[in-house]
Amino acid sequence: MIREPITAPGPGRRHRRSFWSLLGEQAVEAAIRLSGISAIVFVLAIFFFIFREAAPVLFSEQFDPIEFLFSVQWYPTSAVDVRYGTLALTAGTAGVTLLAMALAVPFGLGAAIFVSEFCGPRVKETLKVVIELLAAIPSVVWGFVALTVLSRLMVEYTSAPVGVNMLNGGIILALMSVPIIVSIGEDALRAVPDSYREAAVAMGATRWQLVFRVLLPAARHGLLAAVLLGVGRAVGETMAVLMATGHAVHVPHGILDSVRTLTANIAAELGEAPAGSEHYRILFLTGIQLFAITFAVNLAADLVVRGTRRR
C-alpha cells in the first residue's frame, strides 16, 4: 500500500507527492528490505554450497565419521591405502591456537589495560591508530615475515631443525590476534562505569589494585569475548599458518615440531585435488568442520557480550 505523507498542510491546499516519487520510495524500501535479509541468505548459501560439494562423500557407504574425526592417518593421495583422518590436523589447529593465545592473551589484555587506564588522551589516540594498522597487515605479509625473518631467527636461537614450526606459527598468530583482543578488550574496559573507578580511588586503592580488584572483575565478560574473538581469528587464519608452520601432518610432540592446521591443509591441497574427486569432497567436509568450529566460537563470544549487555 502506498502511504501518503501529509506535507505542508496549508489551508485548502494539500501538497501531494507525485506518483513516481512514491513509487521510487517503494522501490528503494523494497531494495533495503531485500539487502537486509542478504546476510541470512549468504550464510545459508555458504553452508549449502559447501555441503553440496561434500554431500556425495558424506553419504557414501565407505565413509566413516569416526575415522574422519578421530584418526591421525591422513594419506589422501596414497596409491594403495587412502586414509582421511583429520585428528592430526585438528591437533595442529588446537596446538597453534593455544600457543598463540598463551602469548596473545596476556599481552593483549595488558596493552588493553594500558591504553584504557594508564595513558593520556594523545598517547591513547596514537596507540589506537597503531593497533588499527597492526590489524590491517595482510596475512600473506605475516606469512612472508614468518618464512623469511622469523624462521631464520628460529634456527639461530632455538634447537629447531627447521625454522617453520608450531612456535613460529604461534608467534605470528599471536601478533595477528593481539589487535583484536586489544580493541575489543579496551571497549570492555571503557564500558565499566567511571563511578567504579572513583569509588576505588576514594577507598585509597592504587591503580594496580584498581585494575585487578575492580576493573578486571567488572569487565570480565567483555574481556572473555575479546579472547574468544581472538581465538576465532587464530583458528580461521589460513595464509600465515600455511607459510609459517611447515607441512608435517602429525600430532605435535613439542612446540618446535612442524604441524599442519585444518585451514592450511585445505589451502595446500585444494589446488591439487581434481574437482569432484573424493579427496576434493573430503576437503569441503573439513571446510564444514572449520565452519562449525568458528561458528561455535563466534556464537559463544556473541552470547557472552549479550549477557553483559542484559545485566
Binding site: 546476510a39 541470512i40 549468504f42 550464510v43 548459501a45 555458504i46 554450497f49 559447501i50 553440496r52 560439494e53 596475512s139 574473538l229 576465532g232 583458528v235 580461521g236 587464519e237 589460513t238 595464509m239 585451514t263 585445505i266 589451502a267 585444494l270 576437503l283 569441503f284 571446510g287 572449520l290 565452519f291 568458528t294 561458528f295 566460537v297 563466534n298 556464537l299 556473541d302
Partner: peptide
C-alpha cells in the same frame, strides 16, 4: 546473528564457497 557469523567465517571457507558456488 548471521552478520556476526558471516564476519567470523574463515577466509579459506569463503574460498571453498566461491569455488562451489
Amino acid at each position: 546473528l548471521a552478520v556476526i557469523n558471516l564476519a567470523g567465517v574463515p577466509s579459506i571457507v569463503h574460498a571453498l564457497f566461491g569455488l562451489g558456488a
